[in-house]
């Protein structure tokens, strides 16, 4: 009799523990950046509630570890980060401060979204600080390649399924539907219904999409990002920081240099002088600058070279227009392609 009671009690506890989030209760997700929030919302649908530490108007490298962020993490079921050391300066402080053991590094509630993405600028040799702020695991701004957004969605869906097995299938479907939205935004009306876009991404990257994608008809969104950007393949551009590597790589733009002589180091007059000469010689038409960066250096270089400064947010929520991932990329593609079209250089 006694044994039975104990068993019943243990079983009861086991059921309670295994049940995971109670029915009707949403999974609480906190992401480090607004881009991850946008993708997690698309993948989690009605079953999740997502909060982001960065609003999208901030530089995600430099976020003050405010105590209020620790409170946001206190009840989180899942913490998602960009990784590749982007959040290195502040992540541990807020994780430890939250006293939430289920989201610590190494636990199921801690997800690094960089797992599986196409990484660029992964150093092959020894990295040291004389090179500036070089990320030893690769450039962390990978969300600016829309192909990586699809991979992130898949990674998040898988983890959501593990945390909430009841809705596993829905998460997989929602991730597939998000990926399809990205595909459609990228290839526009040229993407056939039911056509697997996977191979198109590689062909587009290599610059040989082939017939059906050249001289594509229609305007605006119907043309897709790739068609909007296709005329500028091989065009040289200058950026403030190396945050645009993935965007440039995806659309075949070529970097002619950065305003920063080395990553994370303030632009110096000597370096800018050399850069101005390079830009004049190569007729670089635009300077791409993330919206939280200072205006002084970009404007100085623009005034000497005639290049256009394109100051644009690189994260969801960076301005009103960038309301979700697709809208954010739309804005980037439109602003950059328009500036390139209009440039007299």
């Amino acid at each position: 009799m006694k044994v039975f009671k104990v068993r019943a009690l243990l079983m009861g506890i086991a059921i309670l523990l295994a049940a995971g989030p109670a029915a009707g209760k949403k999974l609480q997700i906190v992401t480090t950046t607004s881009d991850l929030k946008a993708i997690a919302e698309a993948v989690g649908g009605a079953y999740v509630s997502v909060n982001s530490i960065s609003s999208g108007r901030q530089d995600p490298h430099f976020i003050a570890a405010k105590p209020s962020y620790m409170l946001r993490l206190r009840k989180a079921d899942l913490f998602i980060r960009i990784g590749l050391e982007l959040e290195r300066g502040w992540e541990r402080l807020i994780l430890e401060g939250s006293r939430n053991r289920s989201i610590l590094l190494g636990s199921k509630g801690h997800l690094d979204a960089s797992a599986g993405v196409r990484r660029l600028e992964v150093p092959t040799g020894v990295v040291d600080r004389s090179m500036g702020d070089v990320h030893p695991l690769g450039n962390p701004h990978y969300w600016l390649d829309p192909y990586n957004a699809r991979i992130i969605a898949g990674t998040i869906a898988q983890r959501l399924g593990e945390l909430d097995p009841e809705h596993e299938d829905e998460y997989v479907q929602l991730a597939a539907s998000f990926s399809r939205q990205v595909d459609t935004a990228m290839f526009g009306s040229a993407l056939q219904e039911g056509e697997d876009a996977e191979r198109l991404w590689q062909r587009q990257h290599d610059g040989n999409l082939g017939p059906g994608f050249e001289g594509q008809s229609g305007t605006g969104e119907a043309r897709g990002w790739q068609a909007q950007m296709a005329p500028f393949r091989g065009v040289k551009v200058v950026t403030y920081h190396r945050s645009w590597t993935y965007f440039l790589d995806r659309f075949g733009l070529v970097s002619a240099g950065e305003l920063e002589a080395k990553p994370g180091i303030s632009p110096s007059p000597g370096h800018l002088k050399n850069l101005i000469e390079t830009m004049q010689a190569q007729q670089v038409p635009i300077i791409i600058v993330a919206s939280f960066k200072g205006d002084k250096a970009p404007n100085l270089v623009a005034s000497k070279t005639g290049a256009t400064v394109v100051k644009v947010p690189y994260s969801v929520g960076g301005n009103e227009q960038a309301s979700d991932y697709i809208a954010m990329m739309d804005q980037l593609v439109t602003r950059i392609s328009t500036a390139l079209t209009r440039s007299s250089l």
Binding site: Q58, D59, H61, F62, A64
Partner: peptide, 11 residues
């Protein structure tokens, strides 16, 4: 007490 706009340049 610290004031720092969200859109700051490396702090």
């Amino acid at each position: 007490l610290k004031w720092q706009p969200l859109a700051n340049d490396q702090g």
